[in-house]
């Protein structure tokens, strides 16, 4: 059942390695004061769709399980054991139980999805994920007709996740989706980036990616998936309900109480990177707007 969604970003949007290397030389030259001559040449109309460098994606992360600093995950996530890994799928499913990550992978079709990632903190990246559709995993367990929501839980293992030694948030981290959101072909479980195994700091071995929602919805290092008929209380909503809701759809017209969501900064542009306008549903309006027809997106933020 894979390939239900056709990627509008293609391989051609990935920076070719030669250009990628060239860009580093340009940056190095600029730093050395030699000049910025080469930069204008590669500015094109779809530059906004160009995936970020591996270093951007793997060194600038929010993963409070390893600390609240953006560099903490890359510094400390090595301590995490991801093999063996078991995911409990329970609640309103036909075959509840513990599924080993290896068994899951044997059943799934891995494909590449180049998605925008928009953090609620108003920064963004483009990530070439590898993974499978969540719908396929849910089909493996068999969703019962009464199920309406999916609840996800991150691993709680403070001896390997040093951020969990402090109660910065309630552990384990919890997220949730409405069932139709979970079954949407855009919604994937990512297991790789740039064709490589997903690094621990990005949510190994398996993390959710819901590209039209703020990044915090895309929960990492998942150990439990529960089908339910109750709307799950996700961690950020639980901590600051006036700032973070259940839906958390990217929406430039609904500001965070403390900052504007109208613009975002793409990571990797250096010291003089300009903000760019944020797109409705992070650019996936065509694909997902119908899910929210008739809903007041100001109320259900």
């Amino acid at each position: 059942m894979a390939y239900r969604w056709t990627n509008r970003l293609s391989r051609a949007d990935v920076t070719p390695e030669a250009l990628f290397m060239n860009r580093r030389q340009v940056m190095a030259a600029a730093v050395a004061g030699v000049g910025l001559a080469g930069i204008g040449a590669r500015a094109t109309a779809d530059e906004a769709l160009e995936p970020n460098a591996w270093e951007d994606i793997t060194q600038y992360n929010n993963f409070y399980e390893f600390g609240t600093g953006k560099g903490d995950p890359v510094a400390y996530a090595d301590a995490l054991t991801t093999d063996p890994w078991t995911v409990t799928i329970d609640g309103m499913v036909d075959t509840p139980g513990d599924y080993s990550f290896r068994d899951i992978m044997a059943e799934m079709t891995i494909e590449e999805r180049i998605y925008r990632l928009r953090c609620v903190e108003a920064w963004s990246m483009v990530v070439p994920w590898n993974g499978f559709e969540l719908a396929d995993l849910l089909a493996m367990a068999g969703v019962k007709p009464d199920a309406r929501y999916v609840r996800f839980e991150t691993l709680y293992r403070p001896e390997e996740m040093r951020g969990q030694k402090y109660r910065t948030i309630e552990w384990p981290y919890v997220e949730g989706l409405r069932l139709d959101e979970a079954l949407h072909p855009l919604t994937i479980m990512a297991t790789g980036i740039y064709g490589k195994t997903i690094p621990n700091q990005n949510g190994a071995p398996m993390r959710l990616v819901v590209p039209w929602k703020y990044g915090f919805k895309s929960i990492k290092s998942i150990v439990r998936i529960t089908l339910t008929d109750q709307e799950p209380l996700n961690t950020w909503q639980q901590i600051l309900p006036n700032e973070y809701g259940f839906y958390a759809n990217v929406n430039p017209t609904v500001d965070h109480p403390r900052w504007s969501q109208a613009t975002e900064r793409k990571i990797g542009g250096g010291l003089f990177s300009k903000r760019v306008p944020t797109l409705m549903f992070n650019g996936y309006e065509e694909d997902v707007a119908s899910l929210y027809e008739g809903m007041d997106l100001r109320k259900f933020y």
């Binding site: 060194q59 600038y60 953006k70 010291l271």
Partner: peptide
Amino acid sequence: LAQTGGLGREPI
């Protein structure tokens, strides 16, 4: 540091 990546991937 900001110019050379010493302040991380988002130096601003």
